[in-house]
Structure formats: structure tokens, C-alpha cells
């Protein structure tokens, strides 16, 4: 049974900031995947996913970010992640995702990195 995720969006120049709210797990990862794919298909090449309002993410959600990072890279763009709480930062480290998708401290650093 699928559910939808609330993803707030803001723009800083040519950078799109996506702010998922709550949790990303197997129930709403497909919804998150559609939204990320739509933005990349629409031509966004600089996307920051800001984790400020995200309390939980499972491997289903991490998979969406990996697919997004691959797709945006193939368009010569870049996906940057920021503002993770410690528990989420830890699983990005264990998985080695932080070696292939930039993870930075806050939004200012993320925009600088984009």
C-alpha cells in the first residue's frame, strides 16, 4: 500500500532545494522517486536535498537518491545532500554513499557545492 510524501521545494538561483518532510520508507519511496525523476526530466541539473525535516530514511529512500544522483550526473548535473541528523549521516557513511554523493553540513555549503 503506497503513500505519498510531502516534498517542499525552494529555489536559490539555478539550484533547486528539495525538502522531504517526515520519513522516507518503503511505503512512500516510490512517491519520492517520481518527484525526483520529474524534476530531473524537467531539466534541473543542480538539486540539493535538504534533510532538515527528515527524521528517518530506509534503504528504499537511499536507493532513490542513488538513482537520482546517477541520472543527474548523466545530464552533467549534480545532486548534493545536506543537514542530516547524526543517525541518518551514520547510515550514509556505513553504506559508502557519502563517497559518491556529496553530503555537507548545511544548505549554504550545499549551494556552494552545487
Amino acid at each position: 500500500m503506497a503513500s505519498n510524501i510531502d516534498v517542499q521545494e525552494q529555489r536559490e538561483g539555478d539550484v533547486l532545494i528539495m525538502i522531504p518532510v517526515g520519513r522516507i520508507d518503503s511505503s512512500n519511496a516510490p512517491s519520492f522517486e517520481r518527484i525526483v525523476k520529474d524534476r530531473i526530466d524537467e531539466g534541473e541539473t543542480k538539486i540539493v536535498v535538504d534533510f532538515t525535516k527528515l527524521s528517518f530514511i530506509s534503504s528504499s529512500g537511499m536507493r532513490v537518491l542513488l538513482i537520482g544522483a546517477k541520472n543527474i550526473q548523466s545530464n552533467n548535473g549534480k545532486l548534493v545532500l545536506c543537514s542530516m541528523r547524526d543517525s541518518i549521516r551514520e547510515i550514509f557513511s556505513i553504506s559508502g554513499f557519502d563517497t559518491i554523493i556529496p553530503v555537507v553540513q548545511d544548505r549554504i555549503a550545499a549551494i556552494d557545492h552545487s
Binding site: S58, S59, S60, M62, R63, L66, I67, A69, K70, Q73, I91, I94, S95, G96, T99, I100, I101
Partner: peptide, 16 residues
């Protein structure tokens, strides 16, 4: 450890 373009998608949950 693979680079982004070669990183397989999936299998991560049980590893965590």
C-alpha cells in the same frame, strides 16, 4: 566502494 556510475542499486538494507 565503486564509483557512482558503477554502484549497484539494491542489497543495502540487510548490510545496514
Amino acid at each position: 566502494t565503486s564509483e557512482l556510475e558503477n554502484r549497484p542499486i539494491g542489497g543495502l538494507g540487510l548490510h545496514l
